[in-house]
Design a protein around this nucleic acid. Structure first.
Length: 248
DNA sequence: CGATTTTGACCGGCGC
DNA sequence: GCGCCGGTCAAAATCG
């Protein structure tokens, strides 16, 4: 077992000093050493540029898919720690078949390319770069400090997205969502939908769209972390046990 | 009738 | 500055 590092986006402007951004990582989970995940590819979707790379789905072995499935469910529903994996409910075994998983690396934030440019140069010169090509890492972990740009201090919630082959647009992830917007995406006929977690005081958002090149693919992007567990009752949490027990 | 969806308005960042 | 674009708001419509 080696370790896979799941990377979430953390972009925090230091509240006191105006000068630094800290990129942080998420968490580590066990990863069987005899399994290889497909290499990170590039995301062609303009709207997702900088958010993450998307892995080619066809090269995913069943084991890897199963692994990724567990991974995703864990990341979504138990983002903070990976203990207590028994009551983890994976809802991806139904209509939506998970084919690929991708982790975010560099990011281009809403306020411009300065951040991502700095990030990229930092990465290419930094010592963490070799991790990119390591088979047993989905993502990369590092802590980066960089200059903050002028003006407003803003906080970006951690984000990650994944790609799914699915007929249904919104995958049941155990949380309850309320749609608050829909926009047409340039160069595709498929709209993008915006959802917010219905839990009070929970500002987690997700958006769902279809890949322009392959409309069978659904791209789900999560932003933020739930400060609560899935409010839905764990009515039939036994049907996913074969998935969640793959490793534990 | 409360909750959710729909859908155009609105807004801020960015490029020209 | 202006227009485009991604994201959000919110009022009306719809749902259950």
């Amino acid at each position: 077992m080696s370790t896979t590092n799941i990377v979430n986006h953390h972009s925090l402007f230091d509240q006191e000093q105006d000068h630094e951004i800290h990129m942080q990582t998420g968490f580590n989970i066990p990863f069987p050493s005899n399994m290889t995940l497909p290499p990170l590819g590039n995301c062609h979707d303009q709207s997702l540029k900088g958010i993450s790379a998307i892995t080619p789905s066809s090269s995913l072995s069943p084991e890897a898919a199963n692994f990724a499935q567990t991974l995703l469910a864990t990341a979504i529903q138990k983002p903070r720690q990976f203990e207590d994996l028994n009551d983890l409910t994976s809802s991806f075994g139904g209509a939506g078949q998970l084919l690929s998983l991708n982790r975010s690396r560099g990011n281009s934030w809403a306020w411009g390319d300065q951040v991502s440019d700095c990030l990229m140069s930092k990465r290419s010169s930094g010592g963490d770069d070799h991790h990119h090509h390591h088979n047993h890492h989905i993502g990369v972990s590092s802590t980066i400090k960089m200059k903050k740009m002028k003006g407003r201090r803003k906080v970006r919630e951690p984000r990650f997205c994944f790609k799914t082959m699915s007929d249904v647009d919104v995958l049941d992830d155990g949380y309850k969502w309320r749609k608050y917007g829909q926009k047409v995406v340039k160069n595709t006929q498929h709209p993008r939908s915006y959802y917010r977690c219905t839990q009070d005081n929970c500002r987690v958002k997700k958006r769902v769209e279809r890949l322009a090149e392959d409309p069978r693919m659904v791209i789900t992007t999560y932003e933020g972390r739930h400060a609560h567990s899935p409010s839905n009752e764990l009515e039939d949490s036994q049907t996913h046990s074969e998935l969640t027990n793959f490793f534990w």
